[in-house]
């Protein structure tokens, strides 16, 4: 049986602080859909999502409070420094 899951990705300083780049979080049948903010807590990344950390869902910037669909890819992005 295939278990529904969500992929969580970390980048740059966040990845190195946590010591991992990607995790699959299984979704127990019947449980409420998680949000990026709830996954942040669940994965031991911190109590509350810091204001400077941005969230992307399926590679588009998104709210930390949106409900995640099975199969979604959520990424936590530290402050951007491009160019």
């Amino acid at each position: 049986m295939i278990t529904a899951s969500i992929t969580v990705r970390l980048f740059a300083a966040l990845r190195e602080r946590a010591g991992w780049a990607e995790r699959q979080v299984a979704l127990p049948a019947g449980a409420a859909a998680p949000t990026p903010a709830s996954l942040w807590r669940q994965l031991g990344l911190g109590d509350t999502l810091p204001a400077q950390v941005r969230v992307a869902v399926n590679q588009v910037f998104a709210s930390a409070d949106q409900r995640l669909e099975p199969g979604a890819e959520v990424a936590f992005l530290p402050p951007i420094s491009g160019g």
Binding site: F11, A12, A13, A56, L77, P78, I80, S81, G82, G83
Partner: peptide
């Protein structure tokens, strides 16, 4: 566009 890239495109410098 350059300023948007620097602040809104996911790149990280070390």
């Amino acid at each position: 566009l350059l300023e948007a890239l620097k602040h809104e495109a996911p790149f990280w410098k070390r």
